[in-house]
Computed example of a mutant assay.
Amino acid sequence: MESTLIQGLGFVLVVLACTANDSLQTLGTFLVSNRGRTPLWLQVLWICLATAAILMFGWIRYHGDPAWDRLGSFPPPEAFSWFYLIPPLTIAALTWWGAPIGTSILVLSAFAPMQTTALVKTSALGYLLALVISLLLYGLGLWLLEKRFSRSTEPSSTALPKRWLILQWFSTAWLWCQWMIQNAASLYVYLPRRLSLEELLLSIAVICAALALIFAWGGGPIQSIIRRKINIHDIRSATLIDLVFGMILFTRALSMSMIPLSTTWVFLGLLAGRELALVARLHQASPGQAIKQLVRDLFKASVGVGVSIAVASSLQLVLM
């Protein structure tokens, strides 16, 4: 009975912690660019519909596993103890500090320490891949669009074409679905590997409740990383970021790798490449200032990795 209670509480805590921290990469541009434009309840409803759709699709495709079969290397413990609540509580504390961390690394390595190296390796490679792709895309062509957006006065008026609003909403929903495919394992690691329909619907309700809190909170302190980036308040720039990020995660999904990666590190690589390319092309900020911000973001993310490894190692020593 106690183990079941801890599982349920762990799931609620990890949903709140992971979605709050990872809202930077998936919902950050959506929150910033839609502030004051569309009703908050409609934004929440849209993301909740995307959540239900992708989790139910995974549940059907993988015969009761909404985690998209990515928990094969992370078996559940024989019994859940209160120590398993430490990872989501640690994520919540780091999120309050404003650190973008690899939530997958922290949560999953606590269940399978032997997979920590694989989790860190795939996440680091994801960062480098996103950095290179972003540098190429923004440096060779997308900077021209960003230049046009930065000179336009449309985003501050009601004259912005509705097609951009529609495109951003669909690109955000697509990106959110790609994030769920990669990160559902971090959420459902606390639950049985096969869920009934009733259990699935209850879990979706918990996730949607967490999303409502995050939207009401405005994303929290972690959103400061997004707000510092060049031209990010423009809904068209935000749409481009979502499309590029979603494309990278979709490419990762096509690889069929069963080891989850930290999408946070992928997003930081994307932002780093974009910022460096736009600084070089548009000269809207000094290179030194841009590099300083990127180093600060990377430092906070690195602290998250260090804490993740320390927490996972400590848990294993306690539970042995």
Rank of each mutant, 00 (worst) to 15 (best):
S3L: 05
I259Y: 15
I91V: 10
W265G: 03
N34T: 14
L144F: 02
V305F: 15
R228L: 04
L13P: 04
A280N: 03
L137I: 07
F74N: 13
V107E: 09
L317Q: 05
F111V: 09
W174Q: 01
W82V: 05
I309D: 07
M180A: 00
P113Y: 08
Q168F: 02
S157I: 01
Q115R: 15
R194G: 05
L136T: 06
S33W: 01
N183A: 02
L144D: 03
W179F: 14
F250I: 00
P155L: 03
N21S: 10
A280W: 15
V311S: 02
R296A: 14
L40K: 11
S186C: 02
V44A: 13
L261E: 11
L142A: 00
I105D: 03
F267I: 03
G58Q: 03
A50M: 05
I91K: 11
G273D: 02
L135I: 00
S156E: 15
A301W: 13
L89I: 10
R193C: 04
M114K: 13
L144K: 07
L16H: 07
L243R: 01
R148E: 04
S186E: 09
L278W: 06
W97M: 15
W179G: 07
A93Q: 08
G10K: 06
T117S: 13
L249M: 06
S186P: 05
W46H: 15
W82F: 12
Q25S: 15
L197G: 04
W82Q: 02
L5K: 01
V311D: 08
D242L: 09
R148M: 02
L16E: 02
L42E: 14
A210Q: 02
V305W: 12
W68T: 09
K121D: 10
S186D: 10
T116Y: 13
G306E: 05
S302G: 10
G102S: 07
Q223Y: 07
F215K: 08
W41G: 14
P260I: 00
L167R: 09
S81A: 06
A112N: 07
Q289N: 13
L140K: 09
T239I: 01
L71A: 07
G58E: 03
L42S: 11
R194A: 12
F83C: 03
L71F: 10
L317M: 11
F250K: 03
I241V: 08
I133P: 02
A216W: 04
E275L: 06
P39W: 04
A212Q: 06
A277G: 04
T251N: 08
L135M: 05
R163W: 12
Y190E: 01
T29C: 13
G28D: 13
A173C: 02
T263F: 06
L298K: 00
P221N: 09
I207V: 06
E199M: 12
G219R: 04
L94R: 09
V318K: 10
G64Q: 07
K300T: 06
S3T: 08
R194Y: 15
S33E: 10
R274T: 04
A99G: 04
I6T: 01
M114W: 15
